[in-house]
Design a protein around this nucleic acid. Structure first.
Length: 752
DNA sequence: GAAAATACTTAGAATTCGTCTG
DNA sequence: CAGACGAATTCTAAGTATTTTC
């Protein structure tokens, strides 16, 4: 991999000009047709015009945008596009795809919830009660929980005092780990063996303790001062808290950006008292250095804590997790994903976000809606507070929600990826993708036909679908202008994001894409397309301004409506899932050999994974220490090479000795030992070389996102079985938990 | 029928953890 | 035995897609 690095930067960052359709509606009535969504936007035209030039300026500043060359996707294309229909996929019905028999759900009617008042161990206790009442889960859950507690206690009794670990101790620890893992496996809820609920119902019983609130702000110590214009200013609690948010970020690039600073200052002033506001009128005159230093010292102090202190902290955290981190969902104790209310701070939008630096306010219980079962023990709000609302909606999966003040969007407390609710959805997602596999040829034929349609809408839809399928682009919903960074997906592409080349680098009909996608990650790619697509693109771009929509007759709603008529459940993003998974499967087939050694097998897996990450444009900023650590590794490799050479010559010497002194058994043994040493050296060297290759290839590519969200885990599980690679070489603990369903149900014969 | 609200998945950055090494 | 480093985990922003509202 690698290839040319591309310079320059993504286009965009330009005010979106009106589409022809919008212009038309403007004609119809000056204020009618294209009314802004938010009535709080008067003078839209004028602000737009100025915004346009401002943004054009900004584009130049936008140097920070991560430049990245998307590896040509072509090599994967062939794979994906030659997917024959003849590969008969298994029957798509995912409910049917089970080994063994379905179990009946244990609880079909809501449970009796004894109304309890407070009680900390409520969840556990209750679970026990239920288990006693329900013999089916007794073995799995009750014992499991009891056992689970035990090792923790032991840990607490023998803290880190065991300094020198003897071999036996290490062994014992390992054994304990294995035992623990087995026990965990034992008590795992095998929901995939149960019947599904009727449509829309997500749970029958749900109980939890409500979200965990961050601690209240405490005033700064007296010796830490904020200065304005060189003079000490004692700020009130509210203003001081916000000042500290800024001070803590002083080392961050954010605080050098004008937008960030202005937004922060505006919102900070809102938190000030009248006197403070009168006094503090210029951010440049503010001196946060003492606050900043205090913060840094605190961080240092935390790092320097003794083991005992760290342990105390850890245990305190554990307690919070135990208490707030779990809920009971239909008889089972499930981990919650984000049970902590997001603490207040300064909004960190990605890229050129117009709202970066704004104050993200503290959430009070009065802002929070609780969702749980009516008969469950309703969570208590913190003392002296009340919830905004308590509702009992079992058609949704969230436990609590609140509205965030910066964007006005809703935030939810939901379950961990290892939970049934998330797992089931995930499984279903891959089943839809597999269904797409069985009919993708037909769909491809159809959109190729549609490209010739007389209807402009149909043509645009066909070309957009071609991109989504071929390049794994995201759908591209419309976004509210000025509220977020200027990013696009397929349907929201603008003329300025494409450059057409009749001939480029010996290829006909090349489209050069350059735009910012989700999270302001740049998508840059030069793709040869069919003549028909190329001609259509020319047509779509004719008589349009750079800022106009490429697909002016199309949006994601229309596209998805069409897709779901082709196959129920089909939407634009299914193509991404499907193409990612099929690419992994195909790459694994091509790259890996049973005869390879374990390190090589893993390298192949990572390469297949990487092919997908490249396809999906999953990037990362190369770690700051990348070059350094690469050099380190290289010098290690060099060192090992020398060692190997040395070992080899020693071996030679030893062999000579043996020849000279006939067969002295002692010398024979020496030879054997030297042989082993050489072998060991070779192995280690090889391992490190593979590691170096892998790391280099991963420099700016992030594998995690595709592994977690796009690759059917059953492909990986089956591969592990076929290649005799232990699963934990490719999935860490939380990945194994998330994909427990796949691990359990997949055999070596699985085909996506 | 468009806009807004809602619910949920996907995403990279930031932080924390654990272990290896000098 | 600290401290460097990579892996794992946490955090929350930013998408997609559907439903509700006007």
């Amino acid at each position: 991999m690698g290839g040319e690095k591309n310079v320059g930067q993504a286009k965009g960052g330009k005010a979106k000009a009106k589409t022809p359709r919008q212009r038309l509606s403007d004609k119809e009535g000056s204020s009618g047709g294209d009314a802004p969504r938010k009535s709080t936007k008067p003078n839209k035209e004028r602000t737009k015009a100025t915004a346009k030039s401002q943004r054009a300026e900004k584009v130049k500043v936008q140097k920070k945008v991560k430049a990245f060359k998307t590896e040509s996707v072509e090599s994967f294309d062939d794979v994906r596009f030659n997917l024959a229909v003849k590969e008969e996929p298994e029957d798509g019905d995912f409910a049917q795809e089970k080994r063994g028999k379905k179990r009946k759900r244990p609880e079909d009617e809501p449970m009796e919830g004894p109304s309890c008042s407070s009680a900390t161990p409520m969840l556990n206790r209750k679970l026990k009660e239920k288990d006693e009442a329900d013999p089916r889960t007794e073995k799995n859950t009750k014992e499991g929980i009891k056992k689970e507690k035990k090792p923790k206690k032991e840990e607490a009794e023998h803290p880190v005092t065991t300094k020198k670990k003897s071999k036996e101790e290490i062994e014992a620890a390992k054994a304990l780990k294995i035992k623990k893992r087995e026990e965990e496996e034992q008590q795992r809820w095998r929901w995939w063996e149960e019947d599904k609920y009727e449509d829309g119902v997500k749970w029958k019983f749900l109980e939890h303790r409500g979200p965990f609130f961050p601690p209240e702000y405490q005033h700064l110590p007296d010796n830490v001062n904020f200065y304005y214009n060189g003079k000490v200013v004692k700020l009130g609690l509210a203003a001081e808290e916000v000042a500290l948010f800024f001070a803590q970020m002083l080392d961050h690039e954010y605080t050098t950006k004008d937008v960030f600073r202005n937004n922060f200052f505006k919102d900070w002033r809102k938190e000030m008292t009248l006197e403070e506001r009168v006094l503090i009128s210029d951010l440049n005159k503010c001196d946060f250095r003492e606050l900043h230093n205090m913060h840094k010292e605190k961080v240092e102090a935390r790092k320097a804590m003794s083991k005992e202190e760290k342990l105390v902290m850890k245990e305190a955290n554990q307690k919070i997790v135990e208490e707030y981190g779990f809920c009971i969902l239909d008889h089972h104790r499930e981990r919650i994903g984000n049970f902590k209310i997001e603490p207040p701070g300064l909004f960190r939008g990605r890229g050129e976000h117009p709202k970066q630096g704004m104050l993200k306010k503290r959430i009070q219980p009065e802002d929070v809606i609780i969702n749980c079962e009516k008969k469950s023990c309703i969570p208590e709000p913190p003392a002296g507070h009340h919830w905004k609302e308590v509702r009992h909606d079992n058609t949704v999966t969230w436990l609590a929600s609140w509205t965030e003040n910066v964007q006005g969007s809703c935030k939810y407390v939901m379950l961990n990826p290892s939970s049934k609710l998330k797992g089931e959805k995930d499984w279903e997602k891959y089943e839809v993708a597999r269904r797409l596999k069985s009919c993708v040829n037909g769909i491809r034929q159809q959109y190729q036909q549609d490209i010739k349609s007389k209807q402009m809408e149909t043509r645009q839809r066909a070309v957009a679908l071609y991109f989504i399928d071929k390049l794994a682009l995201r759908a591209g919903n419309e976004k509210e202008e000025g509220e977020t960074a200027d990013t696009v997906g397929c349907c929201s592409l603008r003329v300025e994001h494409l450059t057409l080349h009749d001939l480029l680098e010996d290829k006909d009909c090349v489209v050069e894409f350059d735009f910012l996608g989700k999270d302001c990650i740049r998508y840059y790619n030069k793709v040869p397309v069919t003549k028909r697509v190329f001609k259509n693109l020319k047509l779509f771009m004719k008589n349009k301004e750079p800022g106009d929509d490429l697909f002016d007759r199309l949006n994601t709603c229309l596209l998805n409506k069409h897709l779901s008529s082709l196959l129920p459940g089909l939407t634009a993003k299914v193509f991404r899932t499907f193409n990612a998974s099929i690419t992994l499967q195909e790459q694994l087939r091509q790259l890996s050999n049973m005869t390879d050694n374990p390190a090589e097998k893993l390298l192949s897996y990572n390469r297949a994974n990487r092919a997908v990450a490249v396809l999906c444009n999953h990037q990362r900023v190369p770690p700051k220490t990348f070059d350094q650590s690469m050099a380190n590794l290289q010098s290690k490799i060099d060192g090992r090479r020398e060692q190997l050479a040395l070992a080899k010559s020693e071996l030679k010497l030893a062999k000579k000795e043996v020849q000279a002194h006939s067969s002295d058994s002692k010398l024979q043994a020496v030879v054997e030992r030297k042989k082993k040493a050489v072998q060991r050296c070779e192995e280690q060297l090889m391992k490190m070389e593979v590691q170096a290759t892998n790391r280099e290839e991963n420099k700016q590519i992030a594998l995690g996102t595709s592994k977690l969200n796009y690759l059917d885990p059953r492909i990986s599980v089956a591969w592990c079985k076929n290649m005799e690679v232990p699963l934990d070489k490719i999935y860490n603990k939380s990945q194994r938990d998330k994909f427990a369903w796949a691990v359990d149900m997949t055999g070596a014969d699985f085909i996506f």
